[in-house]
């Protein structure tokens, strides 16, 4: 087990290095420079040279890359060109909000999709199975920024039940209810697509497992339906689901970016859009690395989970 995971971590490091190199090269190839947006710098070559020297941008590319990498390993992601604050600080302000949103959405979509998927598989072809299937088709088809705007229109603008933006009411003391109210709409938006996606996999997975011979054995032993479902069916159906979830995480992050933008959620999503538009390269690069890091990390966790669910997998 340990050799497997050290090797797996080694792979993750290589992936992250590749992502960093790609990010760095792409940022350098991208047209436009941050100082183009600053009228004082734009037509003043001397000032530009000073500006570049100050940020060591006059160095050869490989030197820049390695110093960026070195600094990053020490937790220094550079200074945001827009905010004039360390990128790390900006990140620490925003990553928790994004993790809160994606984490809640993942949890909610699993809580919805597992029971519905199991129900659908056990009653395959029934009226309710078809209802659920139509909803999943709708769920995966609705663009989430559009759903977000619709929900804001109805629940915030017309009915005024829920806040339209932000993570908490500004100027209010901490209150859990307030947080939950703010969390509700973005979570719904983000969960709909994921839940719809997971339902289809849970349904297919459970359907496949209940056809297996060992389910006949379990029935022949006279076990209760719940015991068969929980002990024999779900444990086996969980395996493909773990893979699906780990593959789905990048989409969840991407979806979160858009959703955050729609709901002005103070997470990385809004930041990456504004940072890209204002050519705040240190921030954009840091976000790229961070998202890559999170996805790699969760994939590693998925592998660990897989091992604990499937004894047939031997990690060597």
């Amino acid at each position: 087990m340990y050799p497997f995971f050290s090797r797996r971590i080694f792979h993750a490091i290589i992936v992250l290095l590749g992502v960093s190199l790609l990010t760095f090269v792409m940022m350098n190839l991208a047209p436009g420079d941050p100082y183009h947006l600053d009228p004082e710098l734009r037509f003043n070559p001397e000032a530009v040279a000073r500006w570049k020297e100050l940020r060591q941008l006059d160095q050869p590319l490989h030197v820049q890359y390695f110093s960026w990498l070195k600094n990053m390993l020490q937790g220094d992601f550079g200074i945001s060109l827009v905010h004039n604050k360390p990128v790390w600080e900006l990140m620490m302000e925003r990553v928790p909000a994004t993790l809160l949103l994606t984490g809640t959405s993942l949890l909610v979509s699993l809580l919805i999709s597992i029971p519905l998927g199991v129900f659908s598989a056990l009653r395959k072809g029934s009226f309710w199975d078809q209802v659920i299937s139509s909803f999943t088709l709708g769920g995966v088809s609705i663009p989430n920024f559009w759903l977000g705007m619709l929900l804001i229109l109805f629940f915030s603008y017309h009915f005024k039940w829920l806040p339209a933006a932000g993570m908490r009411t500004v100027g209010m003391e901490f209150s859990l209810l307030d947080y939950l109210k703010h969390l509700l709409l973005p979570t719904v938006v983000l969960s709909v697509a994921s839940a719809a996606y997971f339902i289809r996999y849970v349904r297919a997975g459970v359907w496949e497992v209940i056809q297996q011979d060992y389910i006949i054995t379990a029935r022949a032993k006279g076990l209760g339906d719940m015991t068969i479902l929980l002990r024999h069916v779900l444990r086996n159906a969980a395996l493909p689901l773990i893979t699906v979830i780990s593959l789905h995480l990048p989409y969840l992050f991407t979806g979160a970016m858009l959703t955050e933008y729609v709901f002005s959620w103070p997470g990385m999503g809004r930041w990456i859009v504004s940072a890209t538009l204002s050519r705040d390269y240190p921030s954009v690069m840091a976000i790229n690395i961070m998202v890559a890091f999170l996805v790699t990390l969760f994939n590693l966790v998925a592998d660990l989970l897989y091992a604990s669910f499937d004894p047939r997998i031997k990690y060597r």
Partner: peptide, 17 residues
């Protein structure tokens, strides 16, 4: 009534001891 099945590999649950 106990039942013994034909193919012990597929009739035993792979993820339970």
């Amino acid at each position: 009534i106990g039942v013994i099945f034909q193919e012990p590999m597929t009739f035993l649950n792979p993820v339970l001891t």
